[in-house]
Simulated scan of single mutants.
Amino acid sequence: MSATAATPGRRPPHTPLRGHVRRAVGRDHNPLCRPVDRAYSRLVAGAALTALAAVVLAVLAALLVHGAETDDARNVARHRHVVAAVTTGPAQSDDSRAGSAREHAPARWTYPVGPGAGDVTVPEGTVTGTAVQVGLDDDGRPVGAPRSGELIVTDAVLVGLGTVSVLGSASAGWFALCRHRLDRRAERSWEDAWERVEPRWSGRR
C-alpha cells in the first residue's frame, strides 16, 4: 500500500481549499471520490464562505459603530460650550474603590443664559476657589466632553472583534458537528463495503 493512501473510511488528508471547491461544484471527476468525500468538500467550502461572511459582517458592524459614534460626538460638540468656572468646595471622590474613583466639586459659572452652579468633574486634589473649565450644553447644564477619536476607534474595533468571535465560534461548532456526522457516515460506508468485498477477497464463504 502506498504511504500516501488514505485510511479506509476516512477523507484524504491535506486537500487544498481549491481542491475542495472543485469537488464541491462537481468539477473533480476522480472515480475514487465517494459521495461522502463530495459532502465533506461542500462542508469545507461552506465553512470558508461563512468565515469570509463573518469578516465582512464584522467590518460592516465596526463601520456602523464608528459612524454612529462619530456623528454623536459631532452633535455633542456643536452644542457644547466651554466656560470658566470657580470651585466653591474641595474635590471629592464619588467612589472609594481603587481604580474607579472620579473627582468632582461644586462650582459656579456665568453663562450667556445666566449664572449657574453644579457639580463638575475636576482634577484630583482641586481645592476651593480653583478656576476650572466646564463644558455646558445650550441650556447651561454641565455636560461631558465628546468622545475622542481614539475611543471611537477602540469601540469600533472591539465591536468588530466581538462579531468575528461570536460568528466564528458558531461556525466552528457547526463545522465540528457536521464533520463528526460525515466521519460516522464514512465509517459506516466502509464497513458495508468491506462486508461485501472481504468474503471474495479472503476466499471465505
Rank of each mutant, 00 (worst) to 15 (best):
Met1Asp: 05
Ser2Glu: 11
Ala3Met: 14
Ala3Asn: 09
Thr4Phe: 11
Ala6Val: 12
Pro12Gln: 12
Pro13Ile: 14
Pro13Ala: 14
Thr15Pro: 00
Arg22Met: 15
Arg23Lys: 08
Ala24Val: 13
Val25Gly: 00
Pro31Glu: 00
Cys33Val: 14
Pro35Val: 06
Ser41Arg: 06
Val44Arg: 06
Ala45Cys: 07
Ala45Phe: 08
Thr50Ile: 08
Ala53Asp: 15
Val55Leu: 06
Leu57Gln: 14
Val59Gln: 08
Val59Thr: 09
Leu64Tyr: 06
Asp71Ala: 15
Asp71Ser: 12
Asp72Pro: 01
Arg74Pro: 00
Asn75Met: 10
Ala77Gln: 08
His79Val: 12
Arg80Met: 12
Val82Met: 04
Val83Phe: 04
Val83His: 03
Ala84Gln: 15
Thr87Phe: 07
Ala91Leu: 06
Asp95Gly: 01
Arg97His: 11
Ser100Gln: 14
Glu103Asn: 12
Glu103Ser: 14
His104Leu: 10
Ala107Val: 03
Thr110Gln: 11
Pro112Leu: 01
Val113Phe: 05
Gly114Lys: 02
Pro115Leu: 00
Gly118Asn: 05
Asp119His: 10
Asp119Pro: 00
Thr121Ser: 09
Thr121Gly: 08
Thr121Cys: 02
Pro123Glu: 07
Val127Thr: 15
Val127Glu: 15
Val132Glu: 10
Val134Pro: 02
Val134Glu: 01
Asp137Pro: 02
Asp138His: 01
Val143Trp: 00
Val143Pro: 02
Gly144Glu: 15
Ala145His: 12
Asp155Ser: 11
Val157Ser: 01
Gly162Phe: 06
Gly162Asp: 03
Gly162His: 02
Thr163Glu: 00
Val166Ala: 09
Leu167His: 02
Gly168Phe: 01
Ser169Gly: 14
Ala170Gly: 03
Ser171Arg: 06
Leu177Ile: 13
Leu177Asn: 05
Leu177His: 09
Cys178His: 15
Arg181Leu: 13
Ser189Leu: 04
Asp192Glu: 13
Ala193Val: 08
Trp194Asn: 02
Val197Arg: 07
Val197Glu: 12
Glu198Asp: 07
Ser202Lys: 01
Gly203Cys: 01
Arg205Lys: 04
